Amino acid sequence: KKVTINGVEIKFNNPEEAVKFALELAKRLNLRIEFHGDQIKIE
């Protein structure tokens, strides 16, 4: 399963991993996060 985070394609074994990764990243950098299907936007 491929997920695009800020235009960067990252391959994950499952979608939950991708979501956890994105949330952790957003929390660490104190950023806002948006989900659009397989696209995750962090700003």
Score class of each variant (00 low, 15 high):
2 K>T: 14
41 K>P: 00
9 E>A: 08
32 R>V: 12
11 K>R: 13
11 K>I: 13
7 G>F: 10
42 I>A: 00
31 L>C: 13
43 E>T: 15
10 I>Y: 12
7 G>W: 11
6 N>Q: 08
18 A>R: 02
43 E>D: 08
5 I>R: 03
25 L>S: 00
27 K>R: 10
1 K>W: 15
5 I>N: 01
43 E>Q: 12
26 A>L: 12
8 V>H: 10
16 E>T: 08
41 K>R: 13
31 L>I: 11
37 G>S: 07
16 E>P: 04
32 R>K: 12
31 L>P: 00
32 R>Q: 09
26 A>C: 13
40 I>D: 01
4 T>Q: 05
14 N>M: 11
12 F>D: 00
3 V>D: 03
29 L>F: 10
25 L>W: 06
25 L>M: 07
30 N>D: 06
32 R>L: 09
3 V>M: 05
28 R>T: 05
13 N>A: 13
33 I>C: 06
4 T>M: 13
33 I>K: 00
30 N>P: 03
31 L>Y: 03
5 I>H: 03
19 V>Q: 04
38 D>A: 04
27 K>S: 09
8 V>T: 07
35 F>D: 01
37 G>D: 08
29 L>W: 05
12 F>E: 00
35 F>Y: 08
4 T>C: 15
37 G>Q: 09
28 R>S: 11
3 V>N: 03
28 R>W: 12
5 I>L: 07
19 V>C: 15
10 I>R: 02
40 I>A: 01
2 K>L: 13
15 P>Y: 15
10 I>E: 01
16 E>F: 11
39 Q>R: 09
17 E>Q: 09
29 L>K: 02
22 A>Y: 10
12 F>N: 01
43 E>F: 15
27 K>A: 12
38 D>L: 07
34 E>S: 11
27 K>H: 09
25 L>V: 06
38 D>S: 07
16 E>N: 08
40 I>P: 00
34 E>C: 14
11 K>Q: 11
29 L>G: 06
19 V>H: 06
6 N>M: 12
43 E>M: 14
42 I>W: 00
12 F>H: 01
11 K>W: 15
3 V>K: 02
36 H>Y: 13
21 F>C: 15
8 V>L: 10
36 H>F: 13
26 A>I: 08
35 F>K: 02
36 H>S: 10
42 I>D: 01
10 I>Q: 01
38 D>Q: 08
25 L>N: 00
3 V>E: 04
39 Q>E: 13
3 V>S: 02
18 A>V: 12
42 I>L: 13
24 E>M: 08
43 E>V: 15
25 L>A: 02
7 G>E: 02
36 H>D: 12
28 R>I: 13
30 N>I: 07
20 K>P: 02
40 I>H: 01
41 K>Q: 06
29 L>N: 03
31 L>A: 12
8 V>C: 15
41 K>D: 02
6 N>K: 06
33 I>Y: 02
5 I>S: 02
7 G>R: 04
6 N>E: 04
15 P>H: 13
35 F>V: 08
23 L>V: 08
16 E>S: 11
